[in-house]
Amino acid sequence: MDSSPRVEINESTQRASAAPFQVRGRFFTAIVLQMARAPDAAFFDAVDTMLAQTPHFYANAPFVLDLDHAEDIGPSFDFIGLAREMRNRKITLIGVQNGTIEQNKAALHAGLITLPSGTDVLPESRKPPAAPKDEPKPKPDKPGDGNRNPNESGAKEPRVRQAPVTSSTGAALLVTEPVRSGQQIFAERGDLVVVASVSPGAELIARGNIHVYGTLRGRALAGVHGDSAARIFCETLDAELIAIAGLYKLSDAIDPSLRGRRVQAFLDNGTLCVESLR
């Protein structure tokens, strides 16, 4: 998801004499390891196997540990040691997500950052006013000693908080010009509607749904903040890649009979489905 056209970079170097730096937003793709439990010998074996298969793919990529299911990682867990072990394998841990307060504290102590998991990111302005100020940001309280039922408040809470966002997505971004190769359009607040064609090499990114009333030949990434209810609709499908909430399909993986059709793409139980609209 890296963007910034080269021309822009040239400009910034031109102006470099005036200001020591410029602040630019940028999106990076991080790799999330969903931990089933605290890492043991089998974990490192599995990591080694993964690296042996595609050694270059993971080099220099930022890694995030998802601790949602790793309840046995306690407050005294040695994140520093784990980061060192991973570093030896040329894997760089940058942070954790879905951790308990204790897990987050231990991770912070080890120099890792705590990242909000996809579903519970909310822009400040959109936060329900009722939400108590002192609520811990990434996740509400949950027992740090394990034995947590995933269906209880901890897992449910984000979805409840998500609801007002989907209902109040008034901030759709409308594009009426063709989206050219190399252009990237990001609807950071809601849906993205394109009433033109999207060329190969162009990229559409939206927090919510993506609608293309034209031919979609480039890439479309909906629900990039983790909204798995987001969908992609297009008048004519010829996409290079479609993705919803981080799950993606390359053109090769899309049923060839859907090419050139009116389709929608959505997530069904964690599977990215593409089906024709009648």
Partner: peptide, 8 residues
């Protein structure tokens, strides 16, 4: 493809 980029 390159022309499209230039048009952008």
């Amino acid at each position: 493809r390159d022309s499209d980029r230039v048009l952008g």
